[in-house]
Design a protein around this nucleic acid. Sequence first.
DNA 1: GTCTATACTCTGATAGAC
DNA 2: GTCTATCAGAGTATAGAC
Lengths: 201, 201
Amino acid sequence: MSRPRTRIQARNSAAILEAALDVFSQHGFRGATLDQIAEVAGLSKPNLLYYFPSKEAVHTALLSRLLDTWLDPLRAMNPEGEPLAEILAYVRRKLELSRDFPRESRLFANEILQGAPRIMPAIEGDLKPLVDSSAAVLTRWMDEGRIARVPPHHLIFSIWALTQHYADFDVQVRAVLGEGHDPFAEADSYLEVLFTRLLRP
Amino acid sequence: MSRPRTRIQARNSAAILEAALDVFSQHGFRGATLDQIAEVAGLSKPNLLYYFPSKEAVHTALLSRLLDTWLDPLRAMNPEGEPLAEILAYVRRKLELSRDFPRESRLFANEILQGAPRIMPAIEGDLKPLVDSSAAVLTRWMDEGRIARVPPHHLIFSIWALTQHYADFDVQVRAVLGEGHDPFAEADSYLEVLFTRLLRP
DNA sequence: GTCTATACTCTGATAGAC
DNA sequence: GTCTATCAGAGTATAGAC
């Protein structure tokens, strides 16, 4: 349902996407069932299929909504700003995404684990160019001696890996830390230290 | 089939586990089908079920085989060794696991993404104690001023996150890097720099 | 717009011939 | 040990009443 016309449609479409996010992010595309999504959404299965023509359509709707949100923090990096501050702000925004939208992070992780069958075009068409241009900015900063020289693409990978880990492996992180911890707060200060030490000239 | 009695049984059991690793690591437990596993293994579905009583049993066999392999590198860290060298060696061994056993890494990632329904007991019973004792060693090294002080559990998380990323998100890493790259070789030298700068006193 | 009923396929698992 | 045949249930999707 690309453009909900009524309040009911808007509410039900939203409920379906919300429920589908729950189920797809936990079980992947093939492991998710319309029965389960419909139940979580509080609708009958045929009614769900009135709003979206197929399981595939629900999944696609989720993925396309996700991508923009996911790339925004990197887009927000200012080439004219102070290098280390810009990078640390990017790390913080990415970690906030992990904290506030863990299901979206797991949805993305599931898609990549499956070999990115549906999102590969967007990775090559949107993500790669954005990363390449960001890497060019990082390289300039390194050339100017304002941050230490490291492989820029791998620097970006390490930001993704470290921040997404706290969303995707949340259950393991909490099990290993035990009671009385705030994983995201601790990660926030740890990652600031890590990238500061890595990048100071 | 816990103890294969004949050559045929050994060969078929191995073929099933090999095929199941392919399928489970890509689609997760619920997304994997016995049809697909049997086809990859070159067996009929009933014949597969002659060797393992259920889908669950195949998955369990894979997971229990996995865990020891996965913990070995951390166990190999020597409390009496030179701290930075020990940590860098651990990072390298973990990265080698990602390079040589990416499907095992993805199988584990799938299990955690699903909330660790089957492996949580092992995480709390085996993984957590091992991490806690390793963290104690790291803390001692920090107390002795031989490496910089950082939260030891999060240091371990960051090693996991950074090394596993290259296995679990392999398809994204390669798509973003483009042609002419060796992700694991580049990661090897990048991670050595990263942890050296982070941890030198 | 939403429901019941249902068509049809896939999936995990079993029976029994060879 | 391996196969064909098959079952019961779950899965996606559709038809049609209301």
